[in-house]
């Protein structure tokens, strides 16, 4: 089951550049939350702070408080522990090219030392079914490379891989922006189904997508969270002028 995320006074820097300014936000559990905003507004940086991927860049640092349920992820845990509980799906599908489809899904468990074959088999099947990919790949699980299937299938494979470690939160950084409309629709269907079991945070440039999948939406601009509210409110009756300008296409 998912947990809620409470962000308090989160600031982030890349070298001398201050990319996130005092973000305060409460992301409810088992819902999908969309983050929108123009390129470079800090929404990707924000989600990367939620699983501490931000700090894999040596020049980057973050300050503030992020509570995942009861857990203060910057104080009470290591990045590796956090990332096992927070799955991430990236903008471009990034399956491991040297691994089979099966090994891609099992990698989170296998590379952390888990070897029980029967359990792995179950997890791989369950995760691929959850990602709606099982029927398309079940005959080639160990024969084909994770990079040999189509882009849309690769992205669902990456979702299955993230689900296999049984996370509580799923972060998606523009998961459909490199995909065609049919594959995009499949990913959106998935988000819709998965959000009852996981807390989903999705960054998107596509406002219709945000409207379709997310209960809540946050609007970022120049490193600040301008507005956070129910998706219907953001798109029909935003309280901030800048949000209105953005969603009506006056800039960005």
């Amino acid at each position: 089951m998912g947990v809620d995320i409470r962000v308090e006074n989160l600031n982030a820097w890349y070298g001398p550049v201050h990319t996130l300014h005092d973000v305060n936000l409460h992301i409810p559990a088992n819902h999908a939350t969309a983050l929108i905003g123009p390129s470079g507004c800090g929404k990707s940086t924000f989600v990367r702070c939620l699983n501490r991927m931000h700090e894999t860049n040596p020049a980057a640092r973050a300050e503030g408080k992020v509570l995942m349920g009861e857990l203060d992820i910057y104080k009470d845990a290591t990045p590796v522990e956090i990332r096992r509980r927070v799955g991430m799906v990236f903008q471009r599908p990034n399956p491991f090219p040297t691994m089979s489809i099966y090994d891609n899904v099992a990698s989170g468990l296998k590379l952390n030392g888990f070897r029980k074959k029967r359990v792995l088999d179950e997890v791989v099947e369950r995760s691929l079914r959850q990602a709606a990919l099982w029927d398309e790949v079940k005959d080639d699980l160990k024969k084909k490379s994770g990079a040999s299937i189509s882009g849309g299938q690769q992205q669902r494979l990456c979702i299955a891989r993230a689900l296999a470690v049984d996370p509580e939160v799923l972060l998606m950084d523009e998961p459909a922006s490199a995909l065609d409309p049919v594959s995009t629709a499949k990913i959106e269907d998935l988000i819709f189904k998965l959000k009852s079991q996981y807390t989903i945070v999705i960054v998107t440039h596509n406002m219709q997508q945000a409207a379709r999948v997310a209960e809540n939406t946050g609007f970022f601009l120049m490193g600040k969270l301008v507005e956070f509210a129910a998706t219907t409110k953001i798109f029909t009756n935003p309280s901030d002028k800048r949000t209105e300008d953005y969603i009506t296409g006056r800039f960005g």
Binding site: N51, M53, T56, V80, E81, I82, R83, R84, R85, G87, M88, F90, N94, P95, F96, P97, S107, G108, L111, N112, C158, R161, A162, V165
Partner: peptide
Amino acid sequence: IREAALGLGI
């Protein structure tokens, strides 16, 4: 690809 692995908590 590195980020994918790190993101899985490896």
